[in-house]
């Protein structure tokens, strides 16, 4: 059971949360063509490595937030509020690799 870092409440057990899928996927515009719509609705990065994802602290503050997690180690790197800019995952990965090498 993961320890999920809610940006408002701090780290809490995963039981309190609902995972809400990849972050920063723009909602399809009302006139999106079928391909763009499918991309928005169904196509996901599914990265083996760092991903930005959405969580909701359902049994807590009830709020949605974004987090960066490594999908191999399952370790969270950061969490941030909706509306905050998407982190540059490639750069973040480099930074983490450099830190790990120290």
């Amino acid at each position: 059971m993961l320890l999920v870092p809610c940006p408002w409440c701090g780290p809490r057990p995963e039981l309190e949360f609902v995972a809400a899928g990849e972050a920063h996927v723009a909602r399809p515009s009302p006139d999106a063509d079928p391909t763009a719509l499918a991309e928005a609705l169904y196509f996901r990065a599914n990265t083996k490595g760092l991903i930005a994802e959405r969580w909701r602290h359902l049994h807590g503050c009830g709020r949605f937030f974004n987090a960066v997690r490594h999908t191999v180690t399952d370790k969270f790197v950061m969490s941030y509020r909706p509306g905050d800019p998407a982190p540059d995952l490639a750069r973040l990965a480099e930074t983490l690799a450099a830190e790990a090498a120290l």
């Binding site: 993961l2 995963e14 609902v18 994802e53 999908t71 191999v72």
Partner: peptide
């Protein structure tokens, strides 16, 4: 489990 992972492990719950 509810999240994307390549870790081949999951929670006790």
């Amino acid at each position: 489990d509810q999240y994307v992972s390549y870790s081949q492990t999951g929670g006790l719950q």
